[in-house]
Design a protein around this nucleic acid. Structure first.
Lengths: 125, 125
DNA sequence: CTTGTTGCAAAGCTTTTGCACAATC
DNA sequence: GATTGTGCAAAAGCTTTGCAACAAG
C-alpha cells in the first residue's frame, strides 16, 4: 500500500497549513471546494482518517464537534468562540495541572478548552 | 405546560443520582432499562433535553461523546478512562488557568479533561 | 376530561463504505 | 498496466420528530 500524491490530498493538506487551527470535516470540505469544486465529502473524510493514521493530524473534540489539527504542534490548548463557532489555538500550558488526578490513576494526556468570544467577535459586540 | 411526574422520568433522574458521574444517553438508557425494560430511547433523549432546559443537567463533551451531569455540582473537571470508557469527576481546579487566554478575549467558561486509565483499570493492567 | 408523556417508527445529520471509474507511479 | 484514490450514492450510527395511544392531575 504505497501512498500516492493527488491533487485532492494536496489541497486538503494545504487547507490545514493555511488555516492553522483545528478544522471540522465540514470546514475542510468547504475550504477545499474553493479550489476543487467537485471534491467529494467522502474524500475529505478518507484523507483526514489517513492523515490521523499517519500521525499528521490529531483529533480534538471541541464544542460537540470533532475537529482535526496538525500533530506537529507543541503541546497547547484551545479557545472556542461561541459566536463565530471557530476554534483557536492557545500556546502554553498550566503548572501543576496533574495535581487534580489521584496518584493511582494513569494520565496519558489532557485537554483544556476555554469557551467565550474571540477578539474579533468581542470587538463587534 | 405543567411538568408531570412519571415513572420514566423518576427512573432517569434516579440514574443520574446513583451514578454520580457524567452519563451518555446510551448509558442512561441501558441503566434505566434495568428498571423499566420497555423504556424507549426517545424518552431518554427527551427527558435529558428537558432536564437540560430546566437547568438540572449540563452537557459535557468528553472523548467524542456528549454526556450529561447534574448541574448542582461545584466547578470541577473530568477524567476519561480509555479502557472502560467511563468519565469521572475530579473536584477542584487550577490556579492562573486564564493566563493562557489573551486579554481581549472574553472567557465564559472552561473545561479540562484528562485521559488515561482509572484506578480500577490501571490495577488490572 | 384535558393535556403532557410514552413508545414506535420514520426522518435528519454526520460519518463510513461499496463500487465503478479515473489517476498515479 | 497494476493499484491506489475519487466521487457518487447507499448504508450505518446517533439524535430528533410525528403521531396515536396512554396516563397524570
Amino acid at each position: 500500500m504505497v501512498r500516492r500524491k493527488t491533487r485532492q490530498g494536496d489541497v486538503i493538506r494545504q487547507v490545514f497549513e493555511d488555516e492553522a487551527r483545528p478544522l471540522s470535516p465540514a470546514e475542510v470540505l468547504s475550504l477545499s471546494r474553493k479550489v476543487i469544486t467537485t471534491l467529494g465529502q467522502a474524500t475529505v473524510y478518507r484523507a483526514i482518517k489517513q492523515m490521523v493514521g499517519d500521525g499528521l493530524l490529531i483529533p480534538v473534540v471541541v464544542g460537540g464537534t470533532t475537529r482535526y489539527e496538525r500533530a506537529e504542534m507543541d503541546h497547547h490548548h484551545h479557545f472556542h468562540c461561541q459566536s463565530c463557532d471557530k476554534t483557536f489555538d492557545l500556546p502554553g500550558c498550566v503548572e501543576n495541572i496533574s495535581k487534580l488526578v489521584p496518584e493511582a490513576w494513569k494520565i496519558l494526556t489532557h485537554e483544556l478548552t476555554f469557551f467565550g468570544m474571540c477578539q474579533a467577535c468581542n470587538g463587534e459586540a
